[in-house]
Amino acid sequence: MRTQTMRTAALAVVAMIAAGGSAPAQSSGQAAAGPDRARLVGAWHMVSMEEQAPDGTLTHRDDRDAMLVYTADGHVSVQVMYPASDISSTTNSPYSKDGYEASFGSYDVDEQAHTVTHHVRGSLVRTLIGRDLPRVMQFSTDGHLTLRSARPEEKWSVTWEHD
């Protein structure tokens, strides 16, 4: 009986590891993985992006190709390719260069505030390196993830879908 219990426990541990169930890396003060953090893990592709123009009008963009990846151990990577027609409009963008946006690093989730903060370790735009980029996150009932800047001066939101 004891051998059977040990065998069952060992199989459960192997199954958890095989399914990617290792414990996420945690920074100091970070709570254990909660529902929002667990839902973030995986690869996402951009469904649409909304931006507010300088005159206050809302523009809807869905012609960008992008991928966002969150790993269970706390890493994040984002890549966005703008269409050729938008390359000139990215000249003053704090996130992109020549129509491309790319960064990677780690992330923390605040389950109570429903925010995820990207800690940029590397980026195509070097002024982002070392910065913390807080994002408000919202999950829809159809499984979409919407991220928007937590900074009031940044007027955009991006909707993502799991790959």
Results as ranks from 00 to 15, higher is better:
53 A>F: 00
59 T>I: 12
72 A>Q: 01
81 M>W: 09
74 G>E: 02
81 M>A: 13
64 R>K: 11
52 Q>M: 12
57 T>E: 11
60 H>G: 12
73 D>C: 07
50 E>H: 08
62 D>M: 07
83 P>R: 15
54 P>V: 14
77 S>L: 13
57 T>V: 06
50 E>C: 00
62 D>I: 08
82 Y>V: 02
52 Q>L: 06
70 Y>V: 04
82 Y>N: 02
56 G>V: 09
60 H>I: 15
58 L>I: 11
69 V>I: 11
51 E>M: 11
83 P>F: 15
55 D>V: 07
49 M>V: 01
72 A>C: 00
67 M>T: 15
53 A>V: 01
54 P>F: 14
77 S>Q: 07
61 R>S: 06
71 T>W: 10
81 M>N: 13
66 A>S: 09
73 D>V: 07
81 M>R: 12
73 D>I: 05
62 D>W: 05
71 T>A: 12
69 V>F: 00
59 T>L: 14
51 E>V: 11
64 R>Q: 10
77 S>K: 06
58 L>F: 02
54 P>L: 14
54 P>W: 13
59 T>M: 10
73 D>E: 12
82 Y>T: 00
80 V>T: 06
51 E>Q: 10
78 V>S: 02
60 H>C: 15
55 D>H: 03
57 T>S: 13
49 M>Y: 00
57 T>G: 10
50 E>V: 05
80 V>E: 03
64 R>M: 14
53 A>H: 03
74 G>K: 00
77 S>F: 06
82 Y>A: 07
70 Y>L: 04
54 P>G: 14
67 M>G: 14
80 V>W: 04
65 D>Q: 09
67 M>E: 14
54 P>I: 14
60 H>M: 15
82 Y>F: 14
63 D>E: 12
63 D>Q: 08
72 A>P: 00
81 M>P: 01
63 D>W: 07
64 R>V: 09
82 Y>M: 09
80 V>A: 02
71 T>R: 02
81 M>C: 12
72 A>I: 00
51 E>K: 10
71 T>I: 09
59 T>N: 13
74 G>I: 04
64 R>S: 10
62 D>L: 11
64 R>A: 13
80 V>C: 05
61 R>G: 06
62 D>Y: 05
71 T>S: 15
57 T>M: 08
67 M>R: 09
70 Y>I: 04
67 M>F: 14
63 D>K: 11
67 M>H: 15
50 E>N: 05
65 D>R: 08
74 G>L: 01
73 D>Y: 02
59 T>D: 11
52 Q>N: 05
70 Y>G: 03
52 Q>V: 09
78 V>L: 04
82 Y>G: 04
66 A>H: 03
65 D>V: 10
67 M>C: 15
63 D>T: 08
58 L>W: 06
56 G>A: 08
79 Q>H: 10
57 T>W: 04
75 H>F: 09
